[in-house]
Design a protein around this nucleic acid. Structure first.
Lengths: 156, 156
DNA sequence: ACTACTATCTAAATAATTTTTAGTTTGCAC
DNA sequence: GTGCAAACTAAAAATTATTTAGATAGTAGT
């Protein structure tokens, strides 16, 4: 069992800020920025990653890479008791980039990336057959204006 | 003026896949995985980053870091001609993590991360005063089941 | 078919970074 | 005060990144 760090201090936030800007920033560079030793920067960063506070990932531009259909699918479930089960099933599908339960009039929100509109139609047909899903409403994203990390300065 | 690479080959996709898993993977390790020289791995990856095909970022876990209110806001705009202008205004707000125009009955989707529910209410009050926004509908995300990168295998 | 041009890849030396190791400092409980 | 644990620092060793020069392949022009 791991001990999860309960609170983050100034240094942790400063490290997180660095990595939000450039996930490949070296330990050395981070250390210089923050006036701590390389060892400290390394220990802190590794712990943040281990604790799941931050993960360094390569985020591809869906459009540039060939995903031409990006959509939002509102999913309605009945009976409500099947929600968890449906969520588990959907979360395993590779087209799904985001899945969450909501307070809205629909139960689950599914964001999907597909190579073509055809693939999107097929995806929606596929999930419509899942037990518990009795309706879906699909909305296409036409243009993405912003896709950003939360601004940590809001927490201060 | 830069020439943007129009097509991505097998090697590019393989590099993107590596980085989706671990954005801090070293050039050396990537090169070994893919059986190319370190120089090649480096040139390719740097080009992918320059061209904006991929960006290596630190993604923080909003909840762990202190964002306790994550919501989806549907924004209705009238007259429609103000859409671009409203989008530019909203995209500058630090709470906004995602902004897109949609094909749905609302015009813009805004995803917002706030430290508390109070901050969320204030945010919604604030955008409601923007010229052109005549209605908003807010949906809270209760539980996020999945938040992933698109699966590049779907493109093959 | 030959030459020149361009782009991509490789390989080896040099520069820089990461990792390990040992030691220091600090705070806290006994 | 003593013992202990956590966090930081600093310097050597191991690894990785960058630079440089050169090899290879494809393409356009003659």
């Amino acid at each position: 069992m791991e001990k999860t760090q309960s609170t983050l201090d100034e240094l942790d936030f400063a490290i997180l800020s660095c990595l939000q800007k450039d996930g490949r920033m070296s330990f050395t560079e981070i250390a210089e920025h923050l006036n701590v030793s390389v060892g400290t920067a390394r220990t802190r960063l590794n712990r943040l990653i281990e604790d799941g506070v931050i993960s360094i990932i390569g985020r591809v531009d869906p459009d540039k890479v060939g995903f031409k259909a990006y959509a939002h699918v509102a999913v309605y479930i009945r009976p409500a008791t099947l929600k968890e089960q449906v969520a588990q099933t959907i979360s395993k599908m590779p087209e799904v980039s985001f899945l969450a339960s909501t307070s809205g009039d629909y139960d689950l929100e599914v964001d999907v990336m597909c190579p073509t509109n055809n693939d999107l139609v097929e995806f929606i047909n596929e999930i419509s057959t899942i037990e518990g899903i009795y309706q879906t409403k699909t909305t296409l994203y036409f243009k993405v204006y912003k896709y950003a990390q939360p601004d940590l300065n809001l927490l201060k």
